[in-house]
Amino acid sequence: MINVALAGNANCGKTTLFNALTGANQFVGNWPGVTVEKKSGRLKKHKDVVIQDLPGIYSLSPYSPEEVVSRRYLIDGRPDVIVNVIDGTNLERNLYLTLQLMETGLPIICAVNMVDLLKKQGKRINLKKMEYLLGVPVIGISALKKTNLDVLIDMMIEEKHKEYSFPKYDDRLESALSMIEDQLRGVVSDEDLRFYAIKFFEQDDDVWGNVALDSTRRSEIEELIKTAEKVFGDETGSIVANARYDFIARIVDMSIVNEKDFVMTASDYVDMVVTNRILALPIFVLVMWLVYYISIQTIGGAGSDWVNDVLFGELVPDTATALLKSWHVASWMQGLIIDGIIGGVGAVLGFVPQIAVLFLCLGILEDCGYMARVAFVMDRIFHRFNLSGKSFIPLLI
């Protein structure tokens, strides 16, 4: 039996690939103790291959239920192969998760999806060079058009036990990680040393709380972390994040071939503005103000006014009053029904138009990709508070 895990960012085409690989051989439920959907299935024509579709995530930091579920499955369940589905049109953002998946030491295949859309943008990815830089198998696919899926299936079976070297970061960071690995040796398995060393260095609460270390080893690691923060002049979480982004920048610079070097697409212009270090937050404030204005002040507000003033202010109460009087219902009962039941229900339903318009606006922002860009921008800031960048949206709402 071969267990394959599909991992990737939200909206990268992972579910489309899962449906194409499994067809009708799917099982849907919830992960134990978490209201996060669990989808698994058997590979078509290969009943001995079980595919687990992990929730869409941006990192393996345990800041959301999806990230907790994915990390526990990968570390505790240890699938035979990880197929990392990468959105080829947003390579930099997707590779951040790729590096974290590689840090687990599990066998991995990078399936670069949407290569057909990349061609329309006048770009292409040198997959051989990307494979050389990462040190893991890389294949270009189109889950929607089912391009190269047969090759991917062969790789999933053949690459089951292939090993690779971990991504190498700054020499000073590597030195610190190596010393933390020495402290963890014998406490965690050798195959997990790299992952746990990085998580201890990042001061991951889940790891610090669940890995049993004696006081001597724990104090040694704490001293290493303090020394590293003095050397880098930054917090350890930011040190690792910056090291990953530097590594990603080298891959992107060397792998992406832009056939229109001096021509920017509309998406490039949008990214340049909405993810700008200075303009990103003011633009986000403006967008959320527009959402508020539309959902509360104008369209949603008008709907709520009609429900409150007309529907439950005149039509329903007047109709109910006339009906109850014709039935000669006692006055106290009329008051209970009209002022209590109808008035109470109307007070609640009056908010429905505003909430409906609000979530419609947020759905549009999610589908057009703006929410993913906001999460990307806010991730570095919220990482300092042990939160994911995605948590900014519900926090604001």
Rank of each mutant, 00 (worst) to 15 (best):
N90C: 00
V68D: 02
G140A: 14
S326H: 12
Y245E: 08
D87K: 14
G56T: 07
K325D: 10
R93A: 09
L106R: 07
A266P: 03
E67Y: 06
I157R: 01
R185I: 15
G33R: 07
R93C: 02
L184C: 09
I86A: 00
V257T: 05
M333W: 15
A7V: 14
K128S: 03
V34A: 01
M333P: 12
K128L: 04
D379W: 08
I51G: 01
S295Y: 04
Y196N: 10
Y63T: 11
D246T: 11
K45H: 02
V287T: 14
R42V: 15
G8V: 07
N126F: 01
N148C: 10
V285N: 07
I342T: 07
Y293G: 01
E222Y: 02
T15C: 02
E92V: 13
M1G: 06
Y132R: 15
E92N: 12
L395S: 05
T319Y: 12
L193P: 04
Q52E: 14
N386R: 11
L74H: 06
A330G: 02
R71N: 02
P32A: 07
E314Y: 11
L365C: 03
L358Y: 12
L60H: 01
L60K: 01
I341E: 13
S388G: 10
P107A: 15
I239C: 00
A197S: 09
H383W: 04
K38T: 11
P317G: 12
I180G: 13
Y293M: 07
L279Y: 10
E67T: 12
A372C: 03
I153V: 15
H161W: 14
D271N: 06
